[in-house]
Design a protein around this nucleic acid. Structure first.
Lengths: 197, 197
DNA sequence: CGTCGAATTGATGTCATTCAACTACAGTGG
DNA sequence: CCACTGTAGTTGAATGACATCAATTCGACG
């Protein structure tokens, strides 16, 4: 069956039956994206959300100096979107790009509303997901203003154990808010202290 | 009339008439809080949101070393709550405290749901507010990983022009993720460059 | 007026950046 | 199959940004 992860995820997080997708089949479509393909660019307005069926995406910004800064990674079963662009109808300040060859499910405007019509508690469950997102962002802010690069790296390893193996090191550095060189040194330090990596 | 700001705010952001509050009057109450009074502590579980009718609140964390880190300020007409504690039912990791003597409106669990029953598009409008919150947090993360202390200070001044006059400088430093000493020097630098403060 | 926290300032230390050089390795085209 | 190229990662030396510690001043308020 297609969209297996998508179905399971919706079932698990929104509490709808796995065959519930038929009711809003016109509101989503699968898309294969190649490595390094950009599916959302700065300045675009998009009302889509992207569910990662397989593969790995990242969201990042580019500053005036031309440097990239990773805001978020999205491996399998994650939903990623620029909420600003999506609901507030503003131009996106971010890029979303595939780090690996991926399969994503693009849900269009109205998908969740439509699902909510048939399964009323979808709206509430959906809200819960958003709260979770806010929680993660608050944690990230908190950690950025209160911890060192080394601590943030250890947090990252703990929270996303397998991601380090799939994401280029310089992107992780960017996510942590440091340079690739600094991360390299942090890792060396940790290796010396016999924290195995 | 009481709760003037609260009514106006709900009317403006949620599109309900200013006299609509009667329908859910059992779901909120005003509260006067003194300066330095803590209305939510780490470890507590709270299903309330706090609307600032008058005054100024802040949300902050305390790290292992005992240092405070300001996550957010909330002046008049802001809503502040620990979303984690509120909807995910986990213990709060933050404190919420009054910086000035304040009047707040505490809305209890069910307030928005109840309002939404009578005014159906409240739910959607409410979601929009949450997206806005996410947008702000993303901006903050982006700025923390990509800009210097000076840039962040200037951003802060631009975004919250009057707040600098009401918030002790060391709290602003904490919000920016630097020490009070550093902020003092940043300000001195800017003064030299003839950016008037 | 005296006290206490806030803010400033200086001296010094630490962490992370920058720039540059070098290695390792994967992908490309001849 | 090998040479060429480009990107990732590491390392070193110098620099810069911010932190820490200590001393002093400022200012609000009882």
């Amino acid at each position: 069956m297609e969209y297996q992860n998508f179905r399971n995820h919706l079932s698990k997080t929104l509490g709808v039956p796995t065959d519930s997708l038929e009711v809003c089949s016109t509101f989503y479509e699968a898309k294969a994206v190649k490595k390094n393909e950009i599916i959302l660019s700065e300045g675009e307005i998009s009302d889509s959300t992207f569910f990662v069926e397989k593969g790995l995406l990242r969201m990042y910004s580019i500053d005036k100096a031309g440097k990239e800064h990773v805001i978020q990674f999205a491996p399998e079963n994650w939903i990623i979107s620029d909420t600003t662009s999506q609901l507030l109808n503003e131009k996106s300040r971010f890029y979303i790009e595939a780090i690996e060859e991926s399969t994503i499910v693009v849900t269009k405007e109205g998908f969740f509303e439509n699902l909510a019509k048939v399964y009323p508690d979808v709206a509430e469950k959906n809200q819960r997901l958003m709260f979770n997102h806010i929680k993660n962002l608050q944690n990230r802010v908190n950690s950025l203003i209160s911890t060192t690069a080394e601590e943030r790296y250890l947090e990252f390893l703990k929270k996303y154990p397998s991601l380090m193996l799939r994401v280029p090191q310089w992107m992780v550095a960017s996510y942590l808010g440091i340079t690739p060189e600094s991360l390299s040194r942090v890792r060396k330090e940790l290796a010396n202290k016999k924290f195995i990596i």
